[in-house]
């Protein structure tokens, strides 16, 4: 466990809790893409199939349970409890445009043609693009609440920190995971424009507005 990976996981947990906090305290899913959260659910379920079969550490298992349960809770809040506040008209990204390619790529590029490895690869590829509906929604609505911006910053930072972790592990352990690294780089690059807006606007106390 490198420091970068721990920082990355904590940033990930922070993001997930920030989102739940925002929806629960404002009792509103306004500005939040339900589709992105649905796809994160798929990401965790398809990636952690080994939750009950392979035990790595208490930390590993705890985080897996946390990620799965928190993402299910988030989807429940958006699509059921606070359904009336869900802004479906601005959450128009076609999920199949990312789910199908991720599945096809997983059938082509995987570490073994087994259900588990294909499911894992699908999960890695899907996670790389799952944020697109949310980023799309922010550009469509033209702005994001501050706490939503902080959520996106924490979420984008988690995989960026994982990239530092992968560099660290390659340097010290001499091996790397091509699928995870490739997808992780794509995932982090997709946040590029958001990171720019975050650092030039939100940090200075201004609202995150996507300039028309």
């Amino acid at each position: 466990m490198t420091l970068f990976r721990l920082a990355g996981d904590l940033s990930h947990v922070l993001a997930i809790l920030l989102l739940l906090y925002k929806i629960w305290t404002t009792k509103s899913a306004a500005g939040i893409s339900g589709k992105t959260q649905l796809m994160f659910c798929m990401v965790y379920v398809t990636r952690y199939l080994d939750l009950f079969t392979s035990f790595i550490s208490v930390y590993n298992s705890t985080m897996k349970v946390l990620f799965i349960s928190a993402s299910v809770a988030t989807v429940y809040l958006i699509y059921f409890k606070f359904k009336a506040t869900y802004d479906g008209n601005h959450d128009t990204f076609r999920m199949e445009f990312v789910i199908v390619p991720a599945l096809i790529l997983a059938l082509i590029w995987n570490y073994a043609f087994t259900f588990f490895e294909i499911s894992w690869a699908f999960s890695i590829f899907l996670e790389a693009v799952a944020i697109l509906p949310q980023l799309f929604m922010v550009t469509k609505t033209g702005e994001a609440e501050n706490i939503t911006s902080h959520y996106l910053f924490a979420l984008g930072s988690y995989r960026a920190l994982y990239i530092l972790n992968w560099i660290d592990r390659y340097y010290f352990e001499g091996h790397w995971d091509p699928i995870a690294v490739t997808a992780g780089i794509v995932q982090t690059v997709l946040y590029g424009d958001f990171f720019y807006l975050y650092f030039t606007r939100v940090i200075k106390g201004r609202k995150l507005q996507v300039l028309p």
Binding site: S54, I56, Y111, H175
Partner: peptide, 10 residues
Amino acid sequence: NDNAPSKDEL
């Protein structure tokens, strides 16, 4: 199989 990198990460 053994060439699959370890799945010790989240």
